[in-house]
């Protein structure tokens, strides 16, 4: 085990201590991508997922308010030091029935919309395009079916250099540290993209939070999922299933672009185009 020797390392270490103290006090700071909550995402289903997440979170808060409220009241009022005398009751059928029934009702309220979203998630009919994703230790391979376009997508060089032990490069100076790739997946906005996932070696998992998709890629098996991004942009994710040494270094970048831009990109990726580019 070695200690970091580079000066900026020590500086940022101090900076972190300072910041964590700040964080403990609940102070926020000027960091644009400082996130507390699940992203709402850019698909209809990601928004539905977000709403479900918030709905159940608010239910939990409400239950916590009641249960913790009663507990705290009891902790204040029913203590020996304020002269409380212990009661002797030890059961009440009525109470037991009430606090068995109410949770069941709450669960039913939650179960219905959840089930509806699950059913929608599974509806992969009428896709506009299909991409076959093969996971490797430790990069992704994308193939656009019917298009003769395929490529590997690996961690971007800038992050790759900075991530080494004692690299001497401050991660804060690298754009999208560990979340950038050499060849992103490009898809047109508003298209239903069907993904077929498999793996070359061990189990991986393809996760992009903004698309609300996480699906395992399993060697020998073909998994299916889909998304339909409604906003142009760049969305980043990572492998979510431990897949060995460099599990933390196989990010996913999805560029959602306008259909024309997608067509142009696709043309540039066709073998013919690539060859002519190579000969020029």
């Amino acid at each position: 085990m070695r200690l970091p020797t580079r000066p900026q390392g020590e500086f940022s270490m101090l900076r972190k201590v300072y910041l964590s103290v700040l964080g403990l006090l609940g102070a926020s700071r000027a960091n644009a991508d400082w996130a507390l909550n699940m992203p709402r995402g850019v698909t209809r289903l990601s928004a539905e997922t977000y709403d479900l997440h918030m709905q159940i979170f608010y239910w939990c808060c409400a239950i916590a308010l009641v249960v913790f409220g009663v507990m705290i009241y009891s902790l204040i009022r029913h203590r020996k030091s304020v002269g409380a005398k212990p009661a002797t009751f030890s059961h009440s059928m009525k109470a037991e029935v009430i606090w068995t029934t109410i949770p069941i009702i709450i669960l039913l309220i939650l179960a219905v919309p959840s089930a509806r979203t699950v059913i929608e998630l599974e509806d992969s009919r009428k896709p506009d395009m299909t991409v076959v994703i093969t996971a490797y230790q430790w990069r992704w391979h994308y193939r656009y079916t019917g298009q003769d376009v395929e490529f590997y997508s690996s961690l971007a060089r800038t992050s790759g250099d900075a991530r080494r032990l004692d690299s001497g490069i401050d991660p804060f100076t690298v754009d999208n540290y560990l979340l950038d790739v050499d060849n992103p997946l490009v898809v047109p906005v508003g298209s239903k993209v069907r993904l077929l996932l498999t793996a070359n070696d061990v189990v991986h998992s393809w996760w992009v939070p903004e698309l609300a998709i996480k699906k395992d890629a399993i060697p020998g098996f073909m998994n299916e999922t889909w998304f339909k991004a409604e906003t142009v942009g760049t969305y980043r994710g990572q492998c979510a299933e431990l897949c060995g040494m460099d599990h933390g270094y196989m990010p996913i970048v999805v560029n959602v672009v306008e259909p024309q831009a997608y067509a142009a990109w696709l043309a540039s990726k066709q073998p013919a185009a690539t060859q002519s580019a190579a000969t020029n």
Partner: peptide, 13 residues
């Protein structure tokens, strides 16, 4: 009825 697209995949080991 809800299935309109099927993929048959083969993996060579």
């Amino acid at each position: 009825d809800y299935i309109d697209t099927i993929t048959l995949s083969y993996t060579f080991f």
